[in-house]
């Protein structure tokens, strides 16, 4: 099953090239050049993974991550940053990011992380669906 990925980064030449490379590897990729645009895209479409830049104008990656996870807890987020500090990494993990990679990222590593993220999302969605079915079975008097 093809991975549905959204890249959010204000460096448009970066997102374009990365998106093309991911598409070459069989993924379905969308891009957003700001956090606001990215959040809107997540409202309108379904994604398995969001690849998110940590430092962006208007709203940074940590703030965006908080909103993304609040609205869609199953969505997997991989943070990309030009300057990864240990503190930011820990903060991101605590907020539910799946991973934090430093730019420039290695494509093989990023691809592996995206595949793992998609698998994790599928497990979470399945678990949630099972819970909902169980809940329906228990509450409805069939």
């Amino acid at each position: 099953m093809t991975e549905k990925v959204l890249i959010i980064d204000d460096e448009q030449e970066f997102t374009q090239a990365l998106a093309e490379r991911m598409t070459n590897r069989g993924m379905t990729v969308s891009t957003s050049s700001s956090a606001i645009e990215g959040l809107q895209s997540v409202e309108e479409h379904t994604f398995d993974v969001v690849v998110l830049d940590l430092q962006m104008p208007e709203m940074d990656g940590i703030e965006t991550l908080k909103i993304l996870k609040k609205k869609n807890p199953e969505l997997q987020v991989i943070l990309l940053t030009g300057h990864a500090t240990v503190e930011k990494g820990i903060e991101a993990m605590k907020l539910g990011a799946m991973d934090l990679l430093e730019k420039p990222a290695d494509m093989t590593t990023l691809t592996e992380k995206i595949k793992k993220a998609q698998a994790k999302k599928m497990i979470l969605v399945e678990k949630k669906t099972e819970e909902r079915i169980r809940d329906i079975m228990e509450t409805r008097g069939w």
């Binding site: 970066f14 090239a17 730019k103 420039p104």
Partner: peptide, 17 residues
């Protein structure tokens, strides 16, 4: 250093392409 990393990241993705 963050700005330079961004330049390197764009070059990295384009050479990869």
């Amino acid at each position: 250093s963050h700005d330079i990393k961004n330049c390197l990241a764009i070059m990295n993705e384009n050479t990869g392409l």
